[in-house]
């Protein structure tokens, strides 16, 4: 019984990892894109479980929220919007599939041999730092010739009840503030870009049947374009 309890995380890893592996194969192998998207969702959820097992609770939650909640809905939405009918005798693979399998086998064998099981077994003892808040302090070092040099060091504090989310948030808003703001700017640019690219122009038939307010908008856009080009 003791050995079973001790091996429980390994057992969970094996099962979840096997599900993630199998469903990722099915993502590539499925003919229908909807099935691919659903298996991709299963893969993301399994990977989130693996994140939780590694003490990354916040990232696991973000994985479920953003990937499973946001990106997958976007994929399913587009698949159903495009609604491509696949004939049963249609080819799924591109003309380059032999080279693709060769690259896959080469990369797979390379990665498995590169990992060399056993090399990475040593765990760093101080696991508590994953739940600690970093704090910058200045340490004065008195040199032998009487001068004093100041050195920035990072101290990790352990207030009671600090979890992984708080530690990540503190780090994100202190050391990584500028990348964080750049990421938000990136998201804004991506959103505007997606809207502009995905917008479509009205066809002649639609201009006849479109309601008045839509036509007004189109005319206003035309006027704006003309005034800008003039």
């Amino acid at each position: 019984m003791d050995s079973l309890t001790a091996n429980m995380p390994l057992l969970v890893f094996m099962i979840v990892g096997a599900i993630a592996f199998a469903s990722s194969i099915l993502v590539v192998a499925m003919r229908n894109p909807v099935h691919s998207a659903l298996f991709l969702l299963l893969t993301f959820l399994c990977v989130a479980v693996l994140f939780f097992m590694r003490g990354a609770e916040f990232v696991g939650t973000v994985q479920v929220l953003v990937y499973a909640g946001g990106i997958m809905v976007l994929f399913l939405f587009v698949v159903m919007l495009i609604n491509v009918r696949h004939l049963p005798d249609e080819r799924v693979l591109s003309s380059f599939w032999k080279g693709g399998f060769a690259v896959f086998l080469g990369l797979f064998i390379l990665m498995i041999t590169l990992v060399r099981p056993g090399v990475y077994h040593d765990e760093v003892a101080n696991k508590n730092r994953l739940q600690a808040i970093p704090k910058h302090v200045v340490r004065r070092i008195h040199n032998a010739d009487g001068t004093v040099t100041r050195k920035n060091i990072v101290r990790y504090t352990h207030p009671k009840g600090v979890g992984n989310s708080e530690a990540v948030g503190t780090l994100l808003y202190s050391d990584y503030l500028v990348p964080f703001e750049i990421a938000s700017l990136f998201l804004l640019v991506a959103m505007i870009g997606a809207i502009v690219i995905g917008k479509r122009e009205l066809s002649a038939v639609e201009e006849e049947t479109a309601p008045a307010y839509m036509l007004e908008r189109v005319e206003t856009e035309k006027e704006v374009k003309e005034s800008m080009s003039a």
Binding site: P9, W97, L107, P117, G118, H121
Partner: peptide, 27 residues
């Protein structure tokens, strides 16, 4: 506990499968 190398092996497998899908799929 599962070791880091088992995580790396799983990650390598998923990456290779993703690359396979990028190369061979037509959709």
């Amino acid at each position: 506990m599962p070791s880091t190398s088992s995580y790396l092996i799983l990650s390598g497998a998923l990456f290779s499968i993703g690359l396979l899908g990028v190369i061979i799929r037509r959709n």
